[in-house]
Design a protein around this nucleic acid. Structure first.
Length: 270
DNA sequence: CGCTGACCCTGACGGC
DNA sequence: TGCCGTCAGGGTCAGC
């Protein structure tokens, strides 16, 4: 479920419980994630201080003082929660016992997520393939335009292609295109420089708003036993097929592009 | 070469 | 009540 705002909210939620802590022990209940969790490599981060927590695109990164890093991706159904009591729920796969006595729990129903350990910053190979996320300064109109000006792929699938821009998911791809009045079916080479500029402006605006909405629920987010309940900002097109468009009188359409649902208004998006 | 679709996995939901 | 098909906000990669 998590898109970039949910990942950022999760990162902010766990940060105060994890920063400057150490992991005393790791319990692996099921290592069959998208990439199997490497229990052997995990020994390298036991009893080592966690220096920093970061987010890049939809990845959460724990950096340790010895140079090692843990990279977490939540997939479709992953979540992290901090708990005082140790009572495992179904699909709690990896459990980190912290020096504070708290436990950090990775739960993931569909197991499309992953937790990977890397020896150095340079070896985040998963992230090396990713383009900048919309908040990074490399993601400017010059860059986006140059990456898509010869493309025959639809702008919707371009927005989901993390090699170009990372961190935009299926919900916000539809929302961003609605905000910019661009049809999701238009191909990359038919997108103008100004539209690239606008896409980046709206991406930041929409994602920032969603992060803010998530932040308001942070206080009781990570109490013991609680599951992080994902929020949803006011969506203008996603999931609203058949309903009225917010800027004209026609109905929202739902189509399928590369096996994912796309929602848009045929009248106001061209 | 770039792009599309099949696939990984579990659970919820609607129709019959 | 149960069975079956469909769908879900993630990403990868074979094959066209």
């Amino acid at each position: 479920m998590p898109e970039l705002p949910e990942v950022e909210t999760t990162k902010r939620g766990v940060e105060p419980y994890v920063k400057n802590e150490t992991i005393k022990k790791i319990l692996v209940r099921n290592n069959k994630l998208r990439i199997p969790f490497n229990k052997n490599l995990a020994k390298k981060i036991i009893n080592v201080d966690i220096k920093e927590i970061k987010r890049r695109a939809k990845y959460i990164i724990f950096e340790f003082v010895n140079g090692y890093s843990v990279v977490i991706h939540l997939g479709m159904t992953g979540n992290l929660r901090v708990s005082k009591k140790i009572k495992y729920l179904k699909h709690d796969h990896i459990i980190f016992y912290l020096s504070s006595g708290n436990v950090l729990i990775y739960n993931d129903v569909r197991r499309f997520g992953l937790i990977q350990i890397y020896k150095t910053k340079e070896s985040y190979f998963l992230l090396d393939n990713n383009g900048p996320d919309p908040f990074e300064k490399e993601a400017n109109a010059d860059y986006l335009f140059s990456r898509i000006k010869n493309s025959t792929a639809s702008i919707k699938s371009i927005l989901l292609n993390h090699k170009i821009i990372s961190g935009i998911g299926n919900i916000y791809a539809s929302e961003i295109l609605f905000a910019t009045n661009i049809s999701p079916t238009r191909i990359g080479k038919k997108i103008s420089y100004d539209e690239c500029k606008n896409i980046l402006i709206e991406s930041k605006k929409i994602l920032r708003k969603a992060i803010k909405a998530g932040g308001t629920t942070l206080n009781d987010y990570f109490n013991a036993e609680s599951k992080p309940g994902y929020f949803k900002i006011q969506l203008k097109v996603y999931g609203r097929d058949g309903e009225k468009c917010k800027s004209c009188k026609s109905n929202i359409s739902k189509i399928t592009q590369s096996n994912r649902s796309t929602y848009y208004c045929k009248e106001s998006q061209n």
